[in-house]
Design a protein around this nucleic acid. Structure first.
Lengths: 368, 368
DNA sequence: AAATTAAGTGTGTGCGCACACATTTAAAGT
DNA sequence: ACTTTAAATGTGTGCGCACACACTTAATTT
């Protein structure tokens, strides 16, 4: 006797476990066992109950569920270690913000970090995490092979995960949040070359350390940049010079810039990491003025350089939002049992001296 | 006997009504009466209870509170009427998204609209809203005087409100979300003049209808724009011409552009509203090519113009986020009883042909 | 045939709160 | 002194769910 649900809060809309039980001709306990896959239910009844759940798209009431206080859930995050104000710090802040919002649902978050220049440290942490059997993981797949292995093992244990910052398409996860690196490199080129005097040198700087560690992001951005160059045949109009920056040897960096500029004036420079304030500093030291310098991320030091004019533009990627939305999607998937989108590119934000303050203040505000 | 709370979910952290009752030596009913200001509590006990609440910063458990199903709350929105794809449509989408998130807490949202070119229609709606005594209001204070009066009456009835789109500082509300119009005008100028050949004409277009209605926003943006012009003494280098666009008389608009261009070539144009696709269209009709045109908001028509190159940049203001965060703040204030920030400027987003797709897709995604 | 066991099923309690209702207490009226 | 009345306070129930536990039935075992 499939009596329709009638009166309950939510405008008589939402189905309750009790309703399902009535429809299936069983008790709530049986429905509960099916919902939580605790077994001890005869096949035919289980089938019938699942059918009703399916047909009515039943979702348990999250309020009641959390209030009933089923055991706490553990979310673990794994990102590179960072100092205050660095890029990863913002991701962490977003994760924390999400944590604050969902802690009422009995969810705790645990932070783990690794050395972004050392893949072993990453592997070590992933092992620890697997051993502790968390309920969900959000991590940044900086090292592709190790990440694939990690994701595989998580999948074996049925632990859902979210990727942030960079994407590894092969990984089957709840969601990815990060920038479309290729396009952001393309945009960097567009910004840099717009209005740039021809027949000059454009510098393409690299952080040696990051490259040797095989940073996925930086490589893709550079590729996007070069796509633009090729598309508009800019290598005919500009001398594009590459330079490797060694943080340990500043005088060498400065000398190198001087040398290039002496050969043909440098009108612009770009670096595909957040170290652009360093690049601007080297330019100043090399006494190469009026170069249009572009880089990534709204770190305090970069913002200072942007505001004093030594950096022309910053490309930002809403790191807090990546962390925040990543955790919220895990919550959505695990607790609310709703579907999510696999790949989510955050927009390429173009920052200028004039708008950077508001950009930062707004993001800060969102994280409170 | 102020026994400390010990065991409860939330890691023994959170205080419950029951705990407060025990501390104050009363029953939960009495505490409940104080919490809901239902009176019928002796002065001394009320004082004691409030003290305990204050000292421990007690916040009722939202899950339990909503589950217990106290009467539904009504949130009302009031924004200009719109067609699909217009600016206000995005604000509405943000409101709807927030509504979906909080409806489990027994909150319903009601939408009302007015004619943005007719202050009477605004006043009429506000009266209806006041008569229906909602629990909260989110509105766009397009007409300043009428909005002040509305806000005053809401205050009298103790109904909290949120402003979106434009700010009226005198209004005492839960929050404002919108762009810093002055700064966005300033940024528009920066974008427009960067790399613009000197000794040319720059067109400053206005929607006649919007101006005659006294649009707060557009006026402030223009002011910001002119601040930049003054600051960098650009009126020496460019002929800045104003033009009023009459949507009813397109040939006149086109003629006017032609005439100005004939006098001195037009290198750039800006309009401080979302009608920039119209402006670009008039330019095309007037056969004035290569002008750098800048305008506001990522409406489909503007995006099309941006992508085909007839518009150089769009300045966007995250309208969905305004609606979304506005409603969430009302929820925060009323249901979660948390404090909020009064003035929240959304960032000035600079859109280019290359990044607009991701920008829109991301926002769309957020609104699902 | 009685006792044991396992599989399947139902019942009861509490999470923290809101609200209706019952009860006590004090003040006022007869 | 006894009722009436109002003010102050306490008690009980249910929101929807999770989980421990009690219970039933039928298949074994002794």
């Amino acid at each position: 006797m499939t009596k329709n649900i009638t009166e309950n809060s939510y405008g008589g809309q939402r189905l309750r476990i009790k309703d399902i039980a009535r429809m299936a001709g069983v008790s709530v306990g049986t429905v509960d066992r099916v919902l939580h896959k605790r077994g001890k239910v005869s096949e035919d009844k289980e089938k019938k109950i699942l059918e009703i759940i399916e047909q009515n798209n039943f979702k348990p009431n999250v309020l009641a569920s959390s209030l009933a206080g089923r055991g706490a859930r553990r979310f673990v995050s794994l990102i590179p270690s960072f100092e205050s104000g660095e890029y990863w710090n913002y991701i962490q802040q977003g994760i924390d913000k999400a944590q604050r919002e969902i802690k009422i649902h009995n969810i705790v978050t645990e932070h783990r970090t690794f050395d972004q220049y050392d893949s072993d440290s990453f592997a070590t942490e992933t092992k620890k995490i697997l051993a502790s059997s968390p309920d969900a993981v959000i991590f940044s797949p900086v090292f592709i092979d190790e990440s694939l292995e990690f994701a595989q093992k998580l999948d074996d244990k049925n632990i859902p995960c979210v990727l942030v910052d960079s994407n590894v398409e092969e990984i089957d996860c709840v969601a990815y949040y990060g920038q479309h690196s290729l396009k952001s490199g393309y945009t960097a080129a567009q910004l840099l070359f717009s209005g740039l005097p021809e027949n000059t040198t454009v510098l393409l700087a690299r952080s040696a350390r990051l490259y040797s560690a095989g940073s996925n992001q930086a490589i893709l951005r550079e590729k996007g940049f070069m796509n633009y160059v090729r598309e508009y045949k800019l290598d005919n109009k500009y001398a594009i010079e590459r330079i490797e920056l060694h943080s340990g040897n500043q005088p060498a960096n400065i000398r190198r810039i001087k040398k290039i500029a002496a050969h043909k004036p440098i009108s612009g420079a770009v670096i595909f990491s957040s170290k652009v304030h360093r690049l601007a500093y080297y330019f100043a030291q090399a006494r190469v003025a009026n170069a249009k310098i572009i880089g990534y991320d709204e770190l305090p030091k970069n913002v200072a350089a942007l505001k004093d004019g030594s950096v022309a533009n910053l490309i930002a990627q809403r790191p807090e939002m990546q962390g925040y939305l990543g955790v919220k999607d895990l919550f959505k998937a695990i607790v609310q049992k709703q579907s999510t989108h696999r790949t989510n590119y955050v927009p390429v934000d173009i920052l200028t001296k004039e708008i950077v303050d508001e950009y930062i203040e707004f993001n800060q505000r969102l994280n409170e």
